[in-house]
């Protein structure tokens, strides 16, 4: 065995170790939070309890995965929450009576997403300001379609979100499926290496004959599709549409990606970590009401939780440089 091969084997091993460490942090936080909740209210440790606790995590999880794809490219998406809001408007208005129109509008929105991704790449624009502008555009579209909360989700969608699959509640199933799908596509497949390379090392990728523009456009389209899915599922939960329903998703999604071991430098993201990060952030609120933090301090306590969990990163990174 040549030195190079041994060296790369060693590096792959260390990489795997770091991947595991990245996931260990949000996973530990999640387990600790659940332990506290179950200690205070043992009744929550049941099929029904889990369904309630994680009910709202499903749309946030998909929004966070969309954000993860954009962060993987070294960009950031500040329009994610407004886009999810727009999708809830389209879903609540058209998905029941005119499903074809709704799907056409979704495809149009996804195409627009991809188009702006291409614009960001071609003109080398700062994604933060373009998506900031986009957030106004999506909100404007949403408000034009549906000035206030309204519309109704189709029955099949509400039915799906209330479905009780065997063994585990629906949100847990979806989380596992999304995490595994993301893991195999992004972290394991050979195409995933190309996708991560578009953010981490575009020049090398270009030399290898890939079109960065095409890869980036595709990733933005995929992010749009995931955000669409988040919006549709959210409509099923809230049973109506509202352009202002999800502004918090933008920054919570970013938080979930970073919590899950992602980095803004591009190329370093973990789908499993992101999913666990989203679950952690979505039950942080429940935890605070279980330990009876007064409502006026709950937002602040969420900030403190974010600090506590992320402080773990410092300890981990000092151990494994």
């Amino acid at each position: 065995m040549s030195d190079a091969a041994r060296w790369s084997g060693l590096r792959a091993g260390r990489q795997r170790l770091r991947d595991a460490a990245d996931i260990a942090l949000p996973a530990t936080a999640l387990v600790v939070m659940l332990a506290v909740i179950f200690w205070i209210r043992p009744a929550a440790m049941s099929y029904f309890g889990f369904s309630l606790l994680f009910k709202l995590s499903t749309p946030l999880m998909f929004a966070a995965l969309a954000q993860m794809l954009v962060i993987m490219l070294g960009d950031i998406d500040l329009s994610n929450g407004a886009f999810v809001g727009l999708v809830t408007c389209i879903s609540a208005l058209y998905l029941g009576p005119q499903p074809m129109l709704a799907v056409a509008l979704f495809l149009l929105a996804i195409a627009a997403y991809a188009g702006f991704g291409l614009l960001i790449h071609v003109r080398q624009l700062p994604s933060i300001i373009v998506t900031l502008g986009l957030s106004f555009v999506w909100l404007g579209c949403g408000v034009t379609l549906l000035p206030g909360p309204g519309g109704t989700a189709p029955d099949w969608l509400i039915g799906f979100m209330n479905w009780r699959p065997p063994l585990m509640p629906l949100p847990i199933w979806l989380a596992i499926l999304a995490a595994l799908a993301g893991h195999f596509v992004i972290s394991r497949s050979s195409y995933g290496a190309v996708l991560r390379g578009a953010g981490g090392n575009p020049r090398t990728l270009q030399r290898a004959g890939w079109s960065i523009a095409a890869v980036k456009t595709g990733v933005y389209a995929a992010a749009g599709a995931l955000a669409c899915l988040a919006g549709v599922l959210l409509t099923g939960l809230t049973t109506s549409g509202d352009p202002n329903v999800a502004p918090a998703y933008t920054l919570l999604g970013v938080g979930a990606v970073i919590l899950g071991g992602g980095s803004f430098s591009g190329g370093f993201v973990s789908p499993i970590g992101t999913v666990i990060g989203a679950l952690t952030l979505s039950i942080a609120g429940s935890l605070l009401s279980f330990v009876q933090v007064p409502p006026t301090w709950q937002i602040g306590a969420q900030g403190v939780i974010l600090f506590l969990v992320l402080a773990g990163r410092v300890l981990l990174s000092e151990k494994a440089p």
């Binding site: 624009l125 502008g133 986009l134 957030s135 106004f136 555009v137 999506w138 404007g140 408000v143 034009t144």
Partner: peptide, 19 residues
Amino acid sequence: IEAGIRLMLTGALIILIIA
């Protein structure tokens, strides 16, 4: 101009200027 269109134009102009 309606609120929705106003937001859309605001966003479009931000993107246009930066582009």
